Computed example of a mutant assay.
Amino acid sequence: MTYDSSRVPAQRAPGDGCAVALDLRVAVCPGLTVSVPARLRYHTADPYAVFLDNHTDLATPITWVFARDLLATGLHGWSGIGSVSVHPGVDDRLDSVFITLTGEGSSVVLRAPANRVRAFLESTESLVPTGLERTHLDLDGLLRRLCDGGAASPGP
Rank of each mutant, 00 (worst) to 15 (best):
V109M: 09
G131W: 05
P156R: 06
G80W: 02
L142H: 09
D140I: 01
D95K: 12
V36N: 05
P9Q: 10
H43P: 01
R41V: 00
A19T: 06
A152F: 02
D46Y: 06
S126A: 06
T44M: 03
V26M: 03
D95C: 09
V26D: 00
V109R: 12
R145V: 01
A72Y: 02
R134Y: 12
R41H: 12
T100W: 00
D46E: 09
H136G: 00
E133H: 04
R93L: 14
D16K: 11
P47M: 04
A151E: 13
P154C: 15
S123V: 00
A38C: 02
C29R: 14
L139G: 08
Y48I: 11
R111G: 15
P14H: 08
S6N: 13
A13T: 15
A19W: 04
S5T: 15
G155W: 06
R144W: 09
P9T: 13
A67D: 13
E104W: 01
D16M: 10
G89T: 13
V50G: 04
H76A: 13
F120K: 12
P129W: 11
R39L: 05
P113W: 01
D140R: 02
V90D: 11
P154M: 03
R144T: 07
P113I: 03
A114Q: 12
Q11I: 02
E104S: 03
A19V: 07
L137Q: 15
Y48H: 13
P129G: 05
G141I: 05
R68N: 08
R68G: 05
L70R: 12
L58K: 10
H55T: 05
R144M: 06
L139R: 11
V86D: 03
S123A: 15
G74S: 06
P61L: 04
S106D: 00
H55I: 02
Y42C: 03
V50A: 11
L94D: 12
V8T: 11
V26H: 01
T124N: 03
A49I: 12
I81E: 07
D95S: 15
P30L: 14
A49S: 14
G80C: 05
A59V: 14
T135E: 13
A38D: 00
S96I: 09
G74Q: 04
H76C: 00
V36H: 02
S85P: 07
A112C: 04
S79D: 01
S107C: 10
